[in-house]
Every structure is written in C-alpha cells, then in structure tokens.
Design a binder for these strands. Sequence first.
DNA 1: ACATTGGGTCAACCCTGTTGACGTAAGGCG
DNA 2: CGCCTTACGTCAACAGGGTTGACCCAATGT
Lengths: 231, 231
Amino acid sequence: MSTRVPQERRRRRPTRSGVLLSEDLIVETALRLIGEHGPEALSVRRLGAALGCDPTALYRYFHGTDDLVLAIADRIIGDAMAGFAPGDDWVASLREMALRVRAGYLAHPRAAAMAAHRVTRRRNEIRAVDTGIGLLLTAGFPPADAARLYLAFIDTVLSHAAAEAAFQALPPQQPEADRRSWRDVYQGLDPATYPSLTAVRPELPAMADSSFEQAVDLLLEALAARARARR
Amino acid sequence: MSTRVPQERRRRRPTRSGVLLSEDLIVETALRLIGEHGPEALSVRRLGAALGCDPTALYRYFHGTDDLVLAIADRIIGDAMAGFAPGDDWVASLREMALRVRAGYLAHPRAAAMAAHRVTRRRNEIRAVDTGIGLLLTAGFPPADAARLYLAFIDTVLSHAAAEAAFQALPPQQPEADRRSWRDVYQGLDPATYPSLTAVRPELPAMADSSFEQAVDLLLEALAARARARR
DNA sequence: ACATTGGGTCAACCCTGTTGACGTAAGGCG
DNA sequence: CGCCTTACGTCAACAGGGTTGACCCAATGT
C-alpha cells in the first residue's frame, strides 16, 4: 500500500454507508472530531467510523497519519489567510498576518496544538511564505536578509500561537489553576528571596494574560529599526 | 492496580534480572533511552526491557505515562537552570537565560515537547522569573513594563524552544523530509505564481535552519532600544 | 517465627497504525 | 452498447502500544 495518492480522483464510489469521500470531507471530519473529543480522538479507526467508511479507505487519500496531520495544518493556514491581501504598509501587513494566523489557530486549538510545528509543504503554506517574504522585500531588505528575517518572524508567530492554542486545549480546570497560581503562589513569596517579584507584585496578575501582541510588536519594532538603519 | 504511588518505598526487591528499581533510576534510564535510540524509543515496554524488569513494574512508581513524563520534565528544568547567575550586562544575561532554556529542551526533545506547555510553578521556575524581571528592572524599566516585557521575552523563548524540541522529537524521517522540502519542493515553483520565493530562491535552503537566535536577538534589540528611549 | 503487605511478574484486554489481497463498480474506449 | 481496465472501498491480519487484575514471593515490623 505504498502507493501514490492521486491529486484528482475520478472514480469516486460511495462507501458502504453511502458517503462520497473526498480529501476535504476527511479533513473537515478530522477537525470536527478533534474539536469535539480532543486530539487523542483522532485515529484512523475513529475517523473511519465518523465518516462511515472502512478505516483503511483513508489510505487512498493520505499516505499515513502524518500526511493527514499536514493536510489539517494546511487547511487551518488556508482558512486563516483566506481573503488576505498585503497593503502598502509592510509592518501593518505583517502584523495582520500574525493576528490572522493566531486567530486561525485559536479557532481550532486542539488541532493547532498537534499540527503547529510542522512544515506542510502544501499550497496554502507556500502561498503565505511567498506573501510574507514579499513584504520584507518591499521593505528594502536584500533577499538573504528577507528570507532569514521572515523565518524568525513567522517562527515566533507560529510558536506563540501554538503555545496559546496548547494552553486553550488543556482540560478546563488546568488553565484556571494556572491563572490562580500567578495570583496565589507568587503573591505570598518571601521578599528577601525574591526581591524582583516583590517589586512588581501588583503587576503579576496581568502575567496570566497573553503576550502575543506584545511579542509581535517588539519584533516588528526591531525589523522596522533595521529597515530604517539600512537607508 | 489503582492509584497510590508511595514516596518512600521500603520493601525494595530485586527484579528478575537483579536490578533494584527506584524513581531516579527509572527517570535516568528513560532519558538515556531517548538519547541513545531516538525519541520514539520511550515506551513502557521498552523502558521495562531496558531496566531489566517487567514493564508493568513501572506502575508501582508512576501512575501512568503522563506521570512519568512530568517527572522527566522536572529533572530537565532543574538541569537547565543549575548554576546560572545573572551578570552585569542585562542584555547578555537574558540572552544566556534564553540559550540555557533552549539547550535544556534540546537535550531531551521529546520529553520537552510533551511537557513544554504545561506550567510547573516550582522553585526553579519561580527563581528564573525573579531573575529575569530583576534584569529588566536594572535596565531601568518601571515595574509594570518589566513584568509585561519579561513575559513577552520568556514566552518567545519558551515557545521557540518548544517548537524546536517538537521538531527534533518527530520520527527521524520527518525532520529530514521537512528539511528536504525547503530544497526540493520550494525550488521548483512557478515564478509567476510565487515571485517573492523565486527572488530569494538561493536563500531557501538556509530556511531549514533554526531561527531561535535570530528571534531572540531581534527581541533583545527592541528591548534595548526601548530602554535607551526612556533615558 | 509469624502475619502483613509491598512490589515484581504474568496473562489478558483493547487500542493503535499499516499492509496486502480481494472484488466490485465506474469510466474510457471500441 | 458493452467490454476492460483499474481506482478504490473493504476485509483480515500483524506488530506494537498502554493499562489492569490476579498471583505470589519475600522483606519487614512485631
């Protein structure tokens, strides 16, 4: 069963339960499964059951589990970037890309948590990379810098978004306990042992909030400064 | 076989092969297993084989796989931060903190990938937060800024390190395939559809490299600029 | 020396991904 | 229109995973 997976299939045939399979339908069903029952609910067997087909039918569409995960990741990217067009302001455009990716991840936290760290090699990802590098080229960076800086930018965005998604994907008690720990544990510390924490004590509850935008803004500041310096 | 795992065990009994089990020995063997035979070598059965005991003997020491992973993560954190002391240069010190965290994660990628997004508010972590915020306070930031900026910094470091660890923790063919994809897939693209990728084509192989230091340096640049601006 | 019980072992269960063989029906082509 | 090829859904099987309950021996406190 090491076969290739064709791009367009022509002899579509209903399954035993009457469903017409397709790559899109499989990915959508996988996303629904993960969203409803958690990442560990995604297995070939369960997915087959949810689709109303034999589990091994999926191997006609994906080489294996990993291939399916990549398709899911690319779908999330595609949904997030749908309708995005870069504007004149390259900083603002990169910022919007970041916020879109984050929103896409948070729309499917559990799926994003499992697929976030992969390079999908698929259409939506490639298009996004092209757009992002294009923005840095219009900013005046030479190609070598544009590629490397885009990588640092998108890796920061993706890993931040993945961390946020993973946090949201935890069982509901856990984020709440985590939030409390910033209030309770850190507030009762010995001032002599932890002087700096004591100095910023009133600010600690705010540390349960997301740092996504702060980090992105810092990064864009640095990029803008470097672009200015090269004029 | 229910639940309780005693902290001190007194009736230690040699296994069939003569080994005396202990929580420490199990954790060390698990880390060695991962280091020698790759991340996928960590399974209850293989760990039992490596220890020379029945796999299910481990359930006398840990409630399950998850419990074992947390014990491993605990050790990684301790090892990474051992012996760190902040110096006079706050930027350099934050940089060293970042590199230490990254090194600790990459030393045990799979365990780090599994536990990276779970927050253990333990002593080592609290001390690290105190140190980091202290560095930003000496940089001249007011408490509110120091706390928020430190959060953005450490979240970037942690999520980047987690992403790198997750990448390394994948089965050995996958990172290699991901790496190749930057060379192969992206190199043969249509110039009209992907003009920016075409423009930076010679740089694409470098995009398989890590962006960790680049991202950290950009972030530290932005922080230094803000510190300068407030004088 | 005895009773207690911690803990190592074994067998078993159900899960997982993946494969090769099989047959049926869909579509191209005469 | 009907044959022929073959795409693709199905089935059975395998190896490996985590986890459990029963078993029973020996290390320990008395």
